[in-house]
Design a protein around this nucleic acid. Sequence first.
DNA 1: ATGCAAGGGAAGTTAG
DNA 2: TCTAACTTCCCTTGCA
Length: 112
Amino acid sequence: MFAGGKVRLFHFLFEMLEDPTMAHCVSWVPAAAGVFRFSSTNKDQVAALWGQRKGNKRPMTYQKMSRALRNYARSGEIFKVKKKLTYQFSRETLMSLHKFQQGDLLRGRDFV
DNA sequence: ATGCAAGGGAAGTTAG
DNA sequence: TCTAACTTCCCTTGCA
């Protein structure tokens, strides 16, 4: 998913959330659309995978990844919810992620 | 108090 | 060269 092109952090997070084997690190919070929460014990595993995906020199950590997440609040992709380790995709972001997931990749189109 | 989690300014990196 | 999208650093604030 999201191959061929620069992967954005929110793409990666969505990908992790759609993967059941990653549930011990991040998972959707049932009862609220687009809300997800990191595991307090495994949050750095997701971060490390993100850092590897990007090919960063230094290992990625939750602290550094969350800094990027806070910038998303300013650009409107993801917002922080008042609960511990939980965030929420904006409706627009969630919509485009789902739309992309529903076949655009298979038709060879880039994520927009 | 004490340990996380959150917030954020600011310089640095990298791809396009 | 310039910008976007982080990345790295590191210090302050908030909360249980």
